[in-house]
Design a protein around this nucleic acid. Sequence first.
DNA 1: GTTGACATACGACGTCTCTCGTAGGTATGC
DNA 2: GCATACCTACGAGAGACGTCGTATGTCAAC
Lengths: 133, 133
Amino acid sequence: MPHPPKPTDAELLILRVLWAHGPSTVREVHDALADARTVAYTTTLKTLQVMTEKGLTLREDHRGQHLYRPRLAEAETQQRLVRDLLDRAFGGSTSKLVLQALASRRTSPEELREIRRFLNPRSPKARKESGDD
Amino acid sequence: MPHPPKPTDAELLILRVLWAHGPSTVREVHDALADARTVAYTTTLKTLQVMTEKGLTLREDHRGQHLYRPRLAEAETQQRLVRDLLDRAFGGSTSKLVLQALASRRTSPEELREIRRFLNPRSPKARKESGDD
DNA sequence: GTTGACATACGACGTCTCTCGTAGGTATGC
DNA sequence: GCATACCTACGAGAGACGTCGTATGTCAAC
C-alpha cells in the first residue's frame, strides 16, 4: 500500500500528538488528547487500530503494550493535505492559495520573514524541489 | 444562520461550477459536471437541495425552474477552507502552510511573481533590499 | 385528453466516521 | 487462589455522505 488515505479529522488530531511526542502508547496519546477533547479511552484505542489498518500508523510491541508511531512524516502529510486542498478548492493555483492563506489571519512579522526568505533566497541557489512520487 | 458548514467534496465540486458559471439550473450544473464525473441527474439535484438546506446555496424560481447560486463568494469560502486546514494540520502557522504549498508543486514563475508582489508591496526600502521586480 | 419530455421531491441503501460498551487477556499483590 | 488494575479486541449504533430509483408535477404538441 503506497499511499495511506487522507486522515480524517479525528485521525489528524492523533497524528499531531504522535508527531509531537514521538512513538507513544495508547495511554499517552489519550492523555495528551484529553486537553483538547474528552473521549473514552477505547475510542482512542479503536481509532489507532483503524489508523494502523489503513496504514496511517505503525504499531510495534513493547513489553506487552503497543507503541504507535506515524507512518508518514509530518511535512509529507501536510504536503498531501495542502495539495489536496489546492486541487479541490483552488483549481491548482498555488498563488491563489498562498494569498488566501496570508489574508486569512494576521501573519506575524517573523512568519512573513520566513516566507520571504524562502521566496527570495540570498544566494541564487535553487529552492528545494519536491518530487516525492 | 451566520456560517454555513464546510462544504463536502461533492458540494465543493458543485460550488466551483456555480462560481465559474454564475446562477445556474440543475441541468446546467449537471452538464458542466459531466466532464469530470458521471452521476445521475437526480444526484446533482439532491445535492443541490441539501446544499440549499445547509445554507451553502440560494435558490430562486425562474420560469418554473430553480436557479441556484452560491451563498458565499469563492474567496470567502476559500479563506474558510484554508483557515480550517491551517488549524487542523499546521497548528495555525501560516508560514508552514505557505512553505508546504510552495513545495508541493512546481510553481510557475508567473505565480511566484504574484506572490512576491503581494508580499513586497511597492516601497523603496523593500525594493532596494529584495530587488525582485 | 393523451402523450412525451422535461422538471422537482423524497425515501432508501451502502459506506464511512466517530463513538462507546462489553468481553477477554495478563500481571501484580494479597 | 483471587481480586485489582491495567491492557487489547471487537461489535454495535448514530449520523453524515454520496448515490440512485421512483413518484409526482408541468407544459406544449398533437
